[in-house]
Simulated assay, not measured.
Amino acid sequence: MTGAPAVHLGQEAAFSRAVFDGRVTAARAALAARGIDVMVVTGPENIFYLTGQQTPGYYTFQALVLPVSGEPRFIVRQLESMNCRANTYLDDLVAYGDGDDPLALLSDITRKAAGPTGKVGIDKRGWFLPIGVYETLQGTLGDMVDAAGVIESLRAVKSPEEVAKIAQAARYVDAGIAAGYDAITAGATENDMVAAMLEAAVRAGSEYLGMEPLASSGPRSGVPHGTWKRRRFEAGDPVFLEMAACHDRYHAVLMRSAWLGTPPDDALRMMDACQRALDAALGAMKPGNTCEQVHEAAQAVIDAAGYTDAYRKRTGYSVGISFAPDWGEWQVASLFTGIKTELKPGMVFHVPPALRLYGAYTVGVSETVVVTEDGYRALGTIPRDLRVI
């Protein structure tokens, strides 16, 4: 339209051009070390990390062609091209229409970037690589090298700028959990509570989330990953609250527990075990220790308290860049048995010990923490005790 304001390259970018250039340079070095000449990047988290592109429209096909030598090219739906221009500094966008075949474009561009003998890498374990897409690319590009983990390894240690964004998201989470507590009254509903949580977090500054809050009450809270479902709070109810918030696609998460009335002794003992397990995990959260050691510190507390059968899960996971369907970075790092990844300053984890009497209630407590030079720093400010209302 004549006279319409222009969309400027990078006008809404989360970081400077220099930051993204540095990330691309590091990615190229990592690819070269693996003997990969060009990588097809399809995961929205990795695309954001390398370029800054973010949109709820990633359900349509998009792919970044990243050669070791030469400029990256981004294949994106035409409708998203202005969004991409605003969020990135990419000079070479290949926009396709809704009637076009983006895989034909991708195959042609990738083949030219790789050359006749170049190796093409792709994340074979990514959520956003459907079987049909992979088979089509295999038919046109031949066998591809599994490049899973190449970009994720670069995302593990956050820069001070990234940590600042996660810390900002943590402030939004604090607002949401505090509002959730205030909404827990007899006769109110789970929907009332979650509406208050989301409103407070969004008003505080949060953007759209990688995953919805996990919030439930009464016997429903005894089912893992339960969400709100119109149930009214009653006297004696347990209430479970867990939510994330987002700043520039960087997430922080917090889990808290409440009880409407006097909690039973069993719930208090389980909550005490969760508190001590969290303390033990955080005590092991220091550079040089491994992800496994953090988990084992928490697991030892759970085992000693007699709740081994109720704790068959990892103790935590990396957090940072996320798009639905998750608020965590499971591809980057997990705190669990067998994970020998060494902790380094700048890594960020959500650590959520929780115990359940299945079908009756869940209690748990968590923190989002940054690994520091001599330990950790918790980003949340909400007290960790079981909130009795």
Rank of each mutant, 00 (worst) to 15 (best):
Y59G: 11
S322G: 10
S69I: 09
G22C: 08
V363S: 01
Q168V: 04
A14Y: 08
K119A: 14
Y358F: 13
A280H: 02
Q53G: 00
G149P: 06
E234D: 11
S153L: 04
G226R: 08
S159P: 01
G142M: 08
G375N: 07
K158N: 10
G218I: 01
Q11E: 15
S153F: 03
Q78H: 13
I184M: 12
P44N: 08
A4W: 10
G316F: 01
Y358M: 11
P352C: 03
R249S: 03
S322Q: 12
Y311E: 01
W330Y: 13
L90I: 10
V40L: 09
L105P: 01
A156G: 02
G283E: 05
R171M: 00
A18V: 12
L335K: 11
R356P: 00
M1I: 11
G316C: 04
A277C: 08
A13N: 04
F336A: 15
H247C: 15
L355K: 06
R203K: 13
Q138N: 11
Y250M: 14
R384G: 12
V351G: 04
R276H: 14
T60W: 08
M255A: 10
D91G: 15
Q53L: 13
G261H: 05
R387N: 05
L64N: 03
Y58F: 15
E242Q: 10
R73V: 14
M347G: 06
L90T: 05
A281W: 01
S334M: 12
L79M: 13
T189F: 11
L31S: 05
Q62C: 09
L66S: 02
G115T: 10
D309L: 10
A196F: 00
I339A: 12
A360C: 09
D100L: 02
A148F: 09
A245C: 08
N46S: 12
E367H: 06
L379C: 02
A201Q: 00
G210S: 12
D37P: 07
P325W: 02
A267I: 01
D309E: 14
R34H: 12
V133F: 07
M270Q: 06
A273R: 11
H247Y: 11
D37I: 04
T140F: 09
G222H: 00
E71H: 03
E162Q: 15
G132L: 10
P56R: 13
R171Q: 09
F20I: 09
P72C: 02
E161T: 11
P130V: 07
G149Q: 04
D279Y: 11
W327K: 14
D174G: 03
K165E: 12
Q78K: 15
T42Y: 06
L254W: 03
C84E: 04
F15M: 14
G306C: 04
